[in-house]
């Protein structure tokens, strides 16, 4: 770990001014990903700005739009009675995230910005276009079992590893973001960038911008939602494939569906073809199977991860059956 300086920011203004302007300083909150990246030499920021003292903790769910402060710990979100009642999909995703210790530390904002688990990104001794632009992508023809089948470019096929972001996208979340000029609201769907030519640019946040809250609109999907995570072991493991299914039902008919996949895309991947196949139709085992089959549309797997296509198709089918209560 290379030396860095550290300071606790007492106010948001201080934190934002220390990080903006090309200082390469990095915010730290829970630290669960930053410490791993520092220990393995993947990042070497000159300065860490501790934002834990900022007033962005806590959950408000009384009515209408729910608000989750970006510094709220994952365990506190998952255990919140209002979140459990109104957004069980989010609770399921969080309960399957990391370990209890990590969930006690990790924050909502930091979790949205966690870095990929691509083996080559995490190994500072090998090339990686995301870590060292222009150095190459050993994952393209290498060990790419955990890499993305959607959204990759010849520069990068690193998968976004998140669970919470997948559930939040299915719940149509927005974000509040602060910078030195003030606050702005954005769609979570607009947070992540495709790798294209510049995989080092992962989000649309500018340097010195800070996520301060997640906003969740009211929805009618609470009774018909499900988060399915498929992984190499039963717990404490990243998803090979995950599916967040949020169904708003009109009797037996699907009124509106938001279906998002994790572990398969360079960002949390909305499955529009699946949603279209469900729209307005009675949910039956046959429809779940047909809609699931559409989940592989547009996939571009590599040698080591072609198994993810049928795995995703069947995971979508099973998530739909479970969310619809017909499993």
């Amino acid at each position: 770990m290379l030396a860095f300086s550290y300071v606790v920011a007492p106010h948001a203004e201080t934190a934002l001014s220390l990080v903006c302007g090309g200082s390469n300083a990095t915010f730290i909150a829970g630290g669960t990903d930053i410490l791993q990246l520092l220990q393995e030499g993947v990042i070497a920021p000159p300065s860490l700005i501790d934002i834990n003292a900022l007033p962005f903790s806590g959950v408000q769910t009384e009515q209408g739009e729910a608000r989750i402060g970006a510094l709220t710990r994952l365990s506190d979100v998952a255990d919140d009675p209002g979140i459990r009642q109104r957004f069980p999909l989010l609770v399921q995703a969080l309960q399957e995230t990391a370990s209890p210790q990590v969930r006690n530390m990790a924050t909502v904002g930091g979790n949205l910005l966690q870095r990929t688990r691509c083996l080559y990104f995490r190994d500072a001794t090998v090339p990686c276009n995301k870590r060292q632009p222009g150095s190459g992508c050993p994952a393209w023809d290498g060990l790419n079992r955990i890499n993305a089948i959607f959204g990759g470019s010849d520069r990068c096929i690193a998968a976004n590893p998140g669970d919470m972001a997948v559930a939040l996208l299915a719940l149509d979340a927005d974000l509040l973001v602060q910078n030195v000029e003030g606050e702005r609201r954005m769609r979570l769907a607009d947070l992540y960038r495709m790798p294209d030519e510049n995989p080092q640019h992962e989000t649309t946040l500018a340097s010195g911008e800070l996520i301060t809250a997640v906003l969740l609109p009211s929805n009618e999907a609470a009774g018909h939602s499900y988060y399915l995570k498929v992984r190499d072991r039963a717990s404490f493991e990243w998803a090979l494939v995950s599916v967040a299914a949020a169904l708003e039902m009109d009797g037996t008919r699907v009124h509106r569906a938001r279906i998002v996949a994790g572990g398969v895309g360079t960002k949390p991947w909305r499955l529009m073809r699946v949603e279209e196949a469900l729209q307005g139709r009675p949910l039956t085992p046959d429809l779940a199977r047909q809609a699931g089959n559409r989940a592989g549309d547009g996939a571009a797997p590599r040698a080591g991860n072609a198994f993810k296509v049928p795995m995703l198709q069947r995971a979508v089918e099973r998530a739909l059956l479970t969310a619809g209560g017909i499993a």
């Binding site: 550290y6 210790q101 006690n104």
Partner: peptide, 25 residues
């Protein structure tokens, strides 16, 4: 790297990984 739990301690009663925590924090 926070992946084994051998370093688990309680911070004000809540379990955390000591290896993922800077002492200054």
């Amino acid at each position: 790297l926070g992946q084994c739990g051998a370093c688990t301690v309680l911070l004000e009663g809540r379990r955390i990984n000591a290896c993922l925590t800077l002492a200054v924090m």
